[in-house]
Structure formats: C-alpha cells, structure tokens
Design a protein around this nucleic acid. Sequence first.
DNA 1: CATGAATGAGGGTTCATTCAT
DNA 2: CATGAATGAACCCTCATTCAT
Lengths: 214, 214, 214, 214
Amino acid sequence: MGISDRKQREKEERRRQIMNAAQTTFLAKGFSGTTVEDIAGHAELSPSTIYLYFKNKEELYGSLSLQGLGFLLKELEGINDVPDDRPEAKLTALKESLQNLYKSNPLLLLSVFHFQTSEIMKDLSDNLVAEIKKYSTLAIRHISKFINYGINQGKFKQVNPTAVADIVWSMFSGLLIWEESKRALDSEKQYFEKTFDLAFDLLCYGLIKENQRK
Amino acid sequence: MGISDRKQREKEERRRQIMNAAQTTFLAKGFSGTTVEDIAGHAELSPSTIYLYFKNKEELYGSLSLQGLGFLLKELEGINDVPDDRPEAKLTALKESLQNLYKSNPLLLLSVFHFQTSEIMKDLSDNLVAEIKKYSTLAIRHISKFINYGINQGKFKQVNPTAVADIVWSMFSGLLIWEESKRALDSEKQYFEKTFDLAFDLLCYGLIKENQRK
Amino acid sequence: MGISDRKQREKEERRRQIMNAAQTTFLAKGFSGTTVEDIAGHAELSPSTIYLYFKNKEELYGSLSLQGLGFLLKELEGINDVPDDRPEAKLTALKESLQNLYKSNPLLLLSVFHFQTSEIMKDLSDNLVAEIKKYSTLAIRHISKFINYGINQGKFKQVNPTAVADIVWSMFSGLLIWEESKRALDSEKQYFEKTFDLAFDLLCYGLIKENQRK
Amino acid sequence: MGISDRKQREKEERRRQIMNAAQTTFLAKGFSGTTVEDIAGHAELSPSTIYLYFKNKEELYGSLSLQGLGFLLKELEGINDVPDDRPEAKLTALKESLQNLYKSNPLLLLSVFHFQTSEIMKDLSDNLVAEIKKYSTLAIRHISKFINYGINQGKFKQVNPTAVADIVWSMFSGLLIWEESKRALDSEKQYFEKTFDLAFDLLCYGLIKENQRK
DNA sequence: CATGAATGAGGGTTCATTCAT
DNA sequence: CATGAATGAACCCTCATTCAT
C-alpha cells in the first residue's frame, strides 16, 4: 500500500514534470513549433516516455490548458466568499485575483488565454476544444455574476452583464498577449500589471452609475 | 500598351486572388496549420503557381499582414482630419473607424490582430516580425496621440496615453479574437460590434475627468 | 529564296547562341545543376524559346557533346594527312592537335571529356549515350592507328595499340578534369598545357624501342 | 556493458550498411541523380532512417568520399616503409598499392576519383569541398615525394615532381572512369588492371634517366 | 517566332508516434 | 518503467515542360 502510494506519487510527479516542461516550451515556441523532442529535452526524458503519460501531443496540451482554467475557476469561485459584499469590492477582488494569479504563475495564465485565443485551437480535437470552451464559459459566467450583482443593487448601469464579462475577459487576455508580443521585441517587463490596473479602473469607473459615485 | 496594361491588371488580380484565399485559410487554420496546397485549392490554382507570385509561404503571409496594417494606418491618419476637434470626438471617430473597417472587411482586421499573436510570430523571419511591429507601433502611437490631446485640453484624466492606447488596441484585438473563437463554437454572429461599442463607451467614460462631464 | 536563306541563317545563329550559353552553363554548374532558365538567361532568351530549337534539356546537352566530338574527330582525321610519316611525328601532331583544340576552345574539349566521363551520362537516354560512345570509340580508333603505325614500322614496342590509345585519351581527359577541379579551389591557370606536355613526352619516350632512340 | 557494446556495434553496422548502399547508388546514378529513397531502398531501410545516421544527403556523400580518401592516404603512407629504397621500387609499390586497393574494393577507389569530378563538387557545400581537396592534395604530395626522391638520387630526369604526381593521379582516375564508362556500354571487365599496368610502366620508363637504365 | 503563365511530378526533410528490448 | 530505433505521412518547394496568345 505504502509502496504503491509512493509509486503513485512518483508517477504524478513525472506527469507534473512533463507538464511544466511542456508549458514553458509551448509558450516559447507555440504549439506546432514545439516538437515532442523539445519537451522531452526540457523534462530530461526521452520522447517516448512522454507517451507513457499522455496519449499524444495534443492531450498534453489540453491537460495544460484545462489545468490553468481549473485554477482560474477556483479563484473566481473564491471571490463569492469575500465578506465585503459591495459590488465594487467584488470587482476589485476580481482584479486582484487575476493579478495575483499572474504574479504567482504568469505562464499559467498566459497559457489559459494564449492557448484559447491563438491558432492552436485549430489543431485540437473538437472534444478538447469543447471542454476548454465549457470551462471558459463557466469563468465568464462567474464574472458576469459579479456585474449582475452590481446592477441588481442599483449601483451599476443597466448593461448586459455577459457582455461586460466578455470585455473583462478579452481585455485581460488581449493585454496579456499584447504584452507578451511586445516583450518579444523590446523585452520590457512588469509593464502588464500597471496597464491592466489602469484598464480595469477605467472600465469599472465607467460602469458605476453617476449618482452612485461618492 | 493597352495589352500590357491588361496583363498587368490580370497579374495584380491573381495576386489579390491568392491573397484572399490565403487570408481565409490562414485565419481558419493558422500559419503552420495552413498548407500551401490549401491556399492553392481556395484560389483554384496549383500550388506551384503560388510561387510565381510569392517567394514562399512566409512572404505571402507577410504581405497579407502588412497590407492589413497599411489599411488600418491610413484610417487612423484620416482621423486627424476630423473637423470636430473635441477629444471625445476623436475617440468616437476612432471607434467608428475601427467598426467600419470591421464591417467592410472583417477578415482584414481579424488578420491584423490575429496575425500578431505571438504563436504565429514564432514561425516568421525576424525581418518580417520587425516590420509588422514597426507598423503596429505606429498605429499605437496614433491612438495615443488622441488620448494625449484630451489630456492636454484638460478633459481627460492624467493617464499614461501610451498605456491607454495599448488598452484600446488590446481590447479591440482581444474582443475580435474572443468573438471569433466563440463563433467557432456556437456560430453567434454580429455580436462583436455591440460589445465593442459598450467596451469603448465604458472606457471613454472612465477616461473623462469628472468635472468635465456635462 | 534569299529571304528564306536569311531566315535559315538566323535560325542557325539562334541555335548556336543557345548552344554557347548551354556549354558555359553546363560546365559551370553541371547537368542537373543547370536549369533551363539558367541557359535561357545566358542566351538572353526565354526558357520556352529553347524548346523551339531543342526537344528538351537532354537533347540540347547531347548536341553539344556530339558537336565537340565532331570537331575532335575532324582534327584527328587531319593528322593522317601530315606529310611527315615518322610515327613520332604523328604522335607529336596528335599532342599539338589536342593542345591547339584546347587553346582555341577549352570549353569544347572540356565538354567532350567532362561530359562523357561524369555522372551526366547517367541522366541521358540510352540512344544518346550510344551515339556519344560511337563517336569516342571512333576517336580512340584513330589514335590507336597512329600507335599501330609505329609498331608496324618497328619503332615502337609491342604494345596493345588500343590500350595505349585509351591511355592517351584517359590521361588527357583526366588531366583536363583534374586541372579544372583544382582551378575551382586555387584558381591556378594555364597549368594544364605544361603538364599535358610533360605527360605526353614521358609516355612517348617510354613507347619508343630502346634501340630506336637516337 | 556487453549490451551497450553490442548496441554500439549494431549502430556502426547500420551506418556502414547505409554507406555501402549509398556508394553503389551514387556511383550508379551520380549525386543529384540519386534520391535518398534510392539509397534507402538499397539499404532496405526507410528514407527517414537515413536521417538518423546522417544529417543530410550531402553529409552522407561527404562521409563516403572522405572515408575513401582516408584509406588511400593510409596506403600511401605505408609505402614509405617499403624496405627497398630504390626510387623505382617506390613507384612499383605505388602502382601495386593502387591496384590492390582497386582489386579489394573497386567502388572505394572509383568513388574517390569519381566523386572529385567537378560535376559533383558543384552540389556540395564549400566546407566539404575544401576538406576533400585537402585530403587529395595530401595524397598528391605523398606521390610527388616518391618522384622527388628519385630525382634527388639522380635516377630520374629533372622534372617537376608535383606535375608528375598530378599526372599519375589524373591518369589513374581517368582510366578508372573511362573503364567504367566503357563497361556501362559493353560490359568488358578486368581490363583496367592491364591498361593501368602498361600506362604506369610507360610513364616510369620515360621518367628514368637514360644513363641510369641498365 | 517568342514568350509569359501555369502546372505536375518529384525530391529532401521533419516529426509525431510505435514497438521491441 | 524507460528508451533507442524505426517509420509513414506530410509539407515546402523546384523545375522541366506545355500551351495560349
């Protein structure tokens, strides 16, 4: 039992080791630009070993993407438990949540957004795409719930909450990718956080009803 | 004379025909996912014919990308000539400009932004990437000029104009791609325009100084 | 009549123009390394025009090779008419003949030997190869006749005349090609003539019976 | 240990197997006339397997060429150790050396000389060409050393030793290729050795000073 | 007669994936 | 469990050749 436990854990660790290597490599070279050998090299394994843990390149990619979305969802769910229930507080919590995730593991978030927006999707199986979409739809729904809450409380303008959630989501992802693509050129760093901060503030400010501003 | 004129025009048309086919295909399948045979099929030509008009797959891709950026830049430059010189008017003109471009040729704008995705950039030659970057930097600079104008007139908050330009650009691109990726799944259409409208309004509203609102 | 004559001559000239261009190009880049477009470029014509004068690349090549062999054969036949009928004189005439041909048109001789020894043969049709072989066999036979003459007169050792002819032929061709391949590296020039002179002299000297030397 | 040894040997054998197949094929069809698929067919492997052992077609070709030159060089170096130090003996040893090499592996020698044909050289990278040249220059230098030795001893005429070495080399290569090209037509065999024997003897005889002949 | 435009056939090379050890 | 070796399926691109003008 103890032995098989350890075996189990070792196996999990290998899996993680591969996923980490894959994440770095996919982000650095893109999906089709990345060869299985690349990943294997980073993971210090042989290519064939990868196939013991993942059915194929695509599934490895999918696991990565879903893992990231999973983290994100958990974070979003956590926001509901924020004691302060003013809608502005929810939004601020959302902003901070996203920023914290970014700070703790930029690759993770990058992958979530990068992966689903980029051409990579074209290479994936319909099943996987559907699952990714399901997760991100769920995330959008969470965000729109926060907006809706503000509207119901009469604090926010009468806007389509899903649309606003889409905007937040797109803006975040757009900035992330734009930042990354700029970095490719002039290697500015740490620029994203400030810009996203500003973007979010402007957006939120526009969201609040005029008579509700203090 | 007349004959060589016609020849010239026919040749140009072939070029365009190929570029159109390429645009559709690249958008549908990404750069490395697209085979030259795909494009040739769409253009109803043989693959080798493509090589009479473009040196290779990459250059075809580059022409497409730069062409789109060229259109966009021309449009942005046009905004300077808007007679109404209130900063809000500039921004509204910008919004309408982008929306009109999108309406007249969604593929074109999609490609401009989509093509910048770093996933694709990885496959391109440094030269081409540099040129694309140059163009988009120029575009950003145009947009930030409009923001700056509002700040100087005391109408807009004291924000970093380039950052705001980045936000507009990212938001636009993010929404475009997000929309497209959603469409791939549930084929909703014509949703983008409304969302972008809303996003832009919220953003602008947040941008204007409180004491300047009428 | 006069007109058709001129036409005829113009046509012949075009043919020659193409053959000249082809000779230079084939020697510079080899058979499969040379594209029809290359030749056309040198001839200042369009590729398709070449096909008005030659059925295909191979036949163009063949014509070149046979042309060279024709020149060579004519020269060899001329040696029979040399008034001085001592065998040594025939051999000296042969040596000078080859050297003169080389001096007047090195490309021509190079092509004769280079073409028939090199891998180019592998790309040619059996018919063409057979014809080239026929011609060169004829040439060999001429040379061996000179040797035979010396043997019959009791001046030369009792050797196989064809073998000696082969040796002369191979030595000449070998030196030509070796020289050319060296030139590719260190661009020495005008080295061939002296070396061939020496080789020929050594050979002839070995050929003459000892009691016949003066 | 034993296992890895066997693995190593198997791998070496595969390499050799490919090189053999390549040698035959290159000789039969030339460099550009040979497809990797041809070679793979002869080696009873798939084309992609070839690329596990050689970076590309050119490097495979180069290995072959250099290998042959290597054998040749070793043989030439061995001649210095011939106990009999009369210059004629050195030359006879040279002749026998070349003939033995030819008898033991005609393809090897054929390739050495055939591969140097400039036709083929044109397709190779500068690096490879340089290396091949370096090797063959070395070989020439060896041969010329034997000649020089005879001159210094007052046995040979005052000739340019390098020129004579060039002649030997060219003659050998010319005869080899000429023989092969004749064989392609009328499949005579075993003719080369006798002819080369004769050629060499004539040459050497011409080389020796008259007053030195016994 | 000359040519520009078009293409089909083929070649080199890469890489995800499998399989025997 | 891990891997080295092998391969088939593509893909990009070149080029000899044809054909309509």
